Amino acid sequence: NTKMVRFKKGDSVGLRLAGGNDVGIFVAGIQEGTSAEQEGLQEGDQILKVNTQDFRGLVREDAVLYLLEIPKGEMVTILAQSRADVYRDILACGR
């Protein structure tokens, strides 16, 4: 149940992230009207890879910085997997 989305970065990627470290990086929110939303990313999706950067094992701050450093107008390719069950557990633990 993995999906790959590809879009051109606007002012931002339009994602709020949660998790990090051993639990993985998850989409915690999506800005309305962004390409990330239009391409089908959803809250609870685990981000496995962005462009050439493996997101598994990253701390959340490093994942956020990586997304911020992608220049506006560059193509962004995100490999994600729907993991809403794991995401709910992360929220319940306050991570």
Rank of each mutant, 00 (worst) to 15 (best):
F26A: 08
A18W: 13
E32L: 06
G94C: 06
E32K: 15
R56F: 04
A28W: 04
S82N: 13
S35D: 13
R88T: 11
G29M: 01
A36V: 10
G19D: 04
Q38I: 13
P71N: 03
A84R: 13
R95D: 15
G94S: 13
T77Y: 00
R6V: 10
Q38C: 11
R83D: 06
L48F: 03
K3Y: 10
L15W: 07
V13E: 08
I78N: 11
D85I: 08
V86N: 11
V5W: 00
Q81H: 04
T52M: 09
G20Q: 07
E61F: 02
R95P: 15
L17T: 00
D54H: 07
L67G: 02
V27R: 02
V76Q: 01
V64H: 09
P71D: 06
M75H: 07
L17A: 02
E32D: 11
L58Q: 02
Q81Y: 08
G40C: 03
V5T: 00
I70F: 06
M75S: 08
V23Q: 09
E74V: 02
D85S: 11
Y87P: 11
L58N: 01
Q31D: 15
D89C: 07
L67M: 09
V50Q: 04
R60H: 13
L68G: 14
G29C: 03
R56L: 06
G14A: 02
N1D: 10
Q31H: 09
S12C: 10
E74L: 03
I47P: 02
A18C: 13
Q42S: 11
A28F: 01
K8Q: 13
N51M: 05
R88E: 13
V86G: 08
Q38Y: 12
G94K: 11
E39R: 08
R95W: 10
R95T: 14
M75I: 09
C93Q: 15
G24H: 10
D85R: 09
L41G: 00
L17E: 01
F26R: 05
A36Y: 10
A84I: 14
R83L: 03
L91W: 10
G19K: 05
L15F: 15
D54C: 06
V13G: 04
V27F: 00
Y66G: 05
T52Y: 05
G73K: 04
G33A: 05
D11K: 07
C93Y: 13
A63T: 03
L65M: 14
R95Y: 14
Q46A: 01
D22K: 11
K9F: 04
E39G: 15
L68V: 11
T2A: 01
R60A: 13
M75R: 05
K72F: 04
D62F: 04
F55L: 03
R6L: 04
L91A: 12
N21V: 14
T2M: 14
Q81D: 08
S35I: 14
P71Y: 08
R88C: 09
G73M: 08
D85N: 12
R95I: 08
A84P: 15
G29V: 01
I30S: 01
G14V: 04
S82T: 10
E69R: 14
K49R: 13
T34D: 10
A63Y: 00
A18M: 13
A92M: 13
K49A: 12
E43F: 09
F7I: 03
G40T: 10
G40D: 08
L17C: 02
V64L: 14
D22E: 12
I90F: 10
N1S: 07
V64E: 15
I25C: 08
V5F: 10
F7R: 00
A92I: 09
R16P: 04
L79S: 06
I47W: 00
G20W: 05
T77G: 02
L48M: 10
D85L: 07
V76N: 01
V76H: 03
L91T: 13
G94H: 12
V76W: 02
Q46D: 02
S35H: 10
Q81E: 11
G94L: 02
V86A: 11
G44M: 07
E37T: 07
R83T: 08
G10E: 09
T34E: 07
D45V: 01
S35V: 12
Q81G: 05
I25Y: 00
K3H: 01
A63L: 01
L65K: 15
V76C: 05
M4I: 15
G20Y: 04
A80V: 11
L48H: 00
K8I: 14
L65H: 14
L68I: 12
I30Q: 09
N1F: 09
E69D: 12
D54W: 01
F55P: 08
S82Y: 01
R6A: 05
G20E: 06
K8C: 10
